[in-house]
Write a protein that binds this DNA or RNA. Structure first.
Lengths: 112, 112
DNA sequence: GTACTATACAAGCACTTGGTTGTAGAGGAG
DNA sequence: CTCCTCTACAACCAAGTGCTTGTATAGTAC
């Protein structure tokens, strides 16, 4: 499925998507949006971040086509449109847990 | 599998892994390493990058536990140890292609 | 020993990025 | 209309990042 070797342009596109998710606040935003769409203020409150900051991060995710906006009256509701990102987070979380487990095993092994 | 809501620490870890892959040169390095382990100079030649630059990027990937080093004589060979990253790239590439396809459809649709 | 190769480390620079602050614009309440 | 809320935009700053250049270290060949 993936061309091989990957041309530089495609590498840039792929890296761009990873970079869009590679930010803690954005990860938490996506995690929150798993429960369904939410307005900017709701997200800002729940994450303990400023409205401007959340708006900026949402703009990044929207620019990558990961989330979409829906305007309703005074508010703007964001939702996940690229469901694949949730799978990505699951998968990465698996790697993180595996790494933590091996580190824990190391510590336990040397604790004699 | 994923805790919900994701605590800030875990979000940082997940984001860190994404950030490690979110760089074009590192994507291309991982793509090249699909063919098996390679030395720094080999990778630098094939990517058209400097030895120092490649070494630095490999250090980032190794620091995240994505690749591992094996020293043999004068050279150092790197290989992928977290096979999951290849799946990640496949999946992201799918999203990229889907996005490109929808953009293409948009252009075609308005070409009347 | 010297000379050469391969890798990693360090400093400097340009650029990007996350957060803050201030503000503008759109929409609802009265 | 005025006042308030919600969102987005712009400017700014501090911190991080990728690339380059120079160099140190380790191994090989002679």
């Amino acid at each position: 499925m993936l061309p091989h070797p990957i041309p530089e342009d495609l590498a840039e596109l792929i890296a761009g998507r990873f970079r869009a998710i590679g930010e803690p606040t954005r990860v938490r935003l996506l995690d929150r949006l798993r429960d369904g769409e939410a307005s900017v203020n709701e997200l800002a409150d729940q994450l303990g971040a400023t409205q401007q900051n959340v708006s900026k991060h949402l703009a990044v995710l929207a620019g990558m086509g990961i989330v979409a906006r829906r305007k309703d009256g005074n508010r703007v509701y964001y939702r996940i449109v690229d469901e694949g990102v949730l799978g990505l987070c699951e998968q990465v979380c698996g790697s993180v847990q595996a790494q933590l487990a091996s580190l824990t095993a190391l510590v336990d092994g040397s604790r004699i």
